[in-house]
């Protein structure tokens, strides 16, 4: 268990630092690369949480597809590839009290309700079969709805981005 805790600590620190860099760095491409780090860290945390399949999907979809999209978006909108001073709002400091307040409330709620509760240690990895049984069983309807959302997103993206 110690090994897992150490792994968690290292990855968590990397993620928090990466996330902070994503929201503070003055370069869009750098921010995207920091985001890759955070997402990869999240995938690692999923493995710690016995969620193999979700971790793999995270890598494939996020790091593979979504990041490419982001980079394309950066490129197509001709954002400055180097440093840019105008990345933040003039009123960016509003964000600090709002997010700190939110963080305080959440930590208060979490510590008071979960305290020292431990995760079960003897759990096995959740098999992909079990997930698919759930998706195509009781959660079939959300799956359909999701397929619809994806279809709509594809069509919507084409309609929006088409030049005419």
């Amino acid at each position: 268990m110690v090994a897992q805790n150490i792994a968690f600590g290292i990855i968590a620190v990397i993620m928090v630092v990466g996330a902070l860099r994503v929201v503070t760095v003055n370069n869009v491409v750098h921010a995207a690369l920091w985001l890759v780090l955070v997402l990869a860290g999240a995938a690692a945390q999923y493995i710690l949480l016995a969620a193999e399949f979700v971790a793999v999907t995270q890598v494939l979809v996020y790091i593979g597809a979504v990041m490419v999209l982001f980079l394309f978006g950066t490129m197509l909108t001709r954002a400055q590839l180097g440093k840019e001073k105008q990345l933040n709002n003039p009123t960016w400091y509003f964000g600090i009290p709002a997010s700190l307040l939110l963080l305080g409330v959440m930590i208060l709620a979490l510590t008071s309700s979960f305290g020292d509760e431990k995760l079960p240690t003897d759990s096995e990895l959740v098999s992909t079969q079990a997930i698919s049984d759930q998706i195509f069983g009781p959660y079939l309807l959300p799956f359909w709805a999701l397929s619809f959302v994806l279809l709509a997103a594809v069509i919507g993206a084409i309609v929006l981005a088409r030049k005419d």
């Binding site: 994503v22 964000g95 997010s99 939110l102 979960f114």
Partner: peptide, 24 residues
């Protein structure tokens, strides 16, 4: 592993994200 370590990590990431949405 505690439940809370994951939950608090998630909370921290969430708040950083919120800050980004507001500040960027």
């Amino acid at each position: 592993m505690l439940v809370n370590q994951f939950l608090i990590l998630a909370a921290v990431l969430f708040c950083i994200g919120v800050y980004g949405v507001i500040a960027r």
